[in-house]
Design a protein around this nucleic acid. Structure first.
Lengths: 213, 213
DNA sequence: ACCTGAACACCGTTCAAGT
DNA sequence: ACCTGAACACCGTTCAAGT
């Protein structure tokens, strides 16, 4: 029998899946320390590698930020999907997805900021949309689907046969949710106005604006 | 007659109103170069002073960013005030202020990002809201006023006697406008969806959601 | 009171080597 | 192929002086 074949793990990953480890470490900085302005060197330090090592996996710091944002958007998408899993009435679905969206954003403000902040700045090779942007759009598609269901049921003033019409309606709802989440994170709401009040008021307004006249 | 009393301006402002000059220089970087991540040293360089000089007027870089954001919020407020100067019908006022808000934001994306980004992070002495936050709230008050006018005219489903009700309604509208502006700046809208389409759709939805049933 | 210049402890990124 | 370590050109902020 060879002596040390059973992986003594002399150091966690002096080689191995460093790419994944870096994303994980960065995500930890964002989620646990609520720090979305970490330095690449700090990530490398915590991952136990030299400050040069990340460049073997990400051409620029920007690309690591993008990778973290992708994970964030995937989490958001999963949460929204879970919130709309049943086949409730369209209004109830809109309420569920709206509450979930804002809650997920405020649960991890640093991650939300990163997702919609520096991570989106990359250009992407050849003007193609960045992977973070694509992940963001995929999260939004859950909203599209909820609106489409309302359109098909005839409850919403949205054409069931016109995808563009559904997408526009979903974008408006997304705008409201995104704006509220950002204003809440930035603490820009007037004193005395709570987020919960705002969510309920926003949902009532948006649903009314969406409903068949 | 004395020889050189007519201001030979040996150097623009080796002393003088450096504070204002720094804000002006930073604003130029943001507005003309669309760079809202400038360094303090770069601002000092362009202003023709040593990199230490700004610290005589701003305790931290953050405070200069805050001062720039204040100017941005004042410009936004002025624009919104101008757009709602007449006494048009409530719906027309909402449309005018909405279009103006998004237009102003997209006219200067870097400034809008700065205003709602790093500039808001400061804590402010003793938990008092930062001057940038106060300026942001003052800009929002123009929205409050438009909603209040609609409430008094009986067109909107908002109580004319309940300021909180008006503020909530204004916040919802603000959320939608802010969200759309951010999504547009971040280029997160689905391909094929234009900002103009979005503005019109958003205004129709919000006005419908606002109107008396 | 306001400015300069040197200094400190950091960055992101690159180069030249190591295995 | 992936890693290290030195190096470069920057930062924000502070200290010790200058006027």
């Amino acid at each position: 029998m060879p002596k040390k074949i059973r992986r003594p793990e002399p150091k966690p990953y002096h080689h191995g899946d460093l790419r994944r480890a870096l994303i994980e470490t960065a995500l930890q900085l964002v989620t646990q320390d609520q720090d979305w302005t970490f330095s690449l060197r700090e990530v490398a330090r915590r991952a136990g590698v030299s400050h040069r090592a990340p460049y073997n996996h990400f051409p620029e710091k920007q690309d690591l930020l993008g990778a973290v944002a992708v994970v964030g958007f995937e989490k958001l998408r999963d949460g929204l999907l879970r919130a709309t899993a049943g086949n409730a009435a369209p209004e109830a679905l809109v309420e569920a997805i709206g509450r979930t969206y804002v809650r997920l954003g405020l649960e991890n403000p640093a991650l939300y900021r990163l997702m919609f902040g520096p991570a989106l700045a990359e250009a992407g090779p050849g003007d193609r949309p960045t992977s973070a942007k694509l992940a963001g759009r995929q999260a939004r598609e859950v909203l599209d689907d909820v609106i489409a269901r309302g359109a098909r049921s005839g409850v919403f003033a949205v054409s069931p046969d016109d995808p563009k019409d559904q997408i526009l309606a979903a974008h408006v709802f997304w705008s409201a949710l995104h704006g509220l989440t950002m204003l809440a994170i930035d603490d820009l709401m007037a004193p005395g106005v709570t987020v919960d009040e705002m969510i309920e008021r926003l949902l009532r307004t948006e649903i009314k604006g969406l409903r068949q006249a």
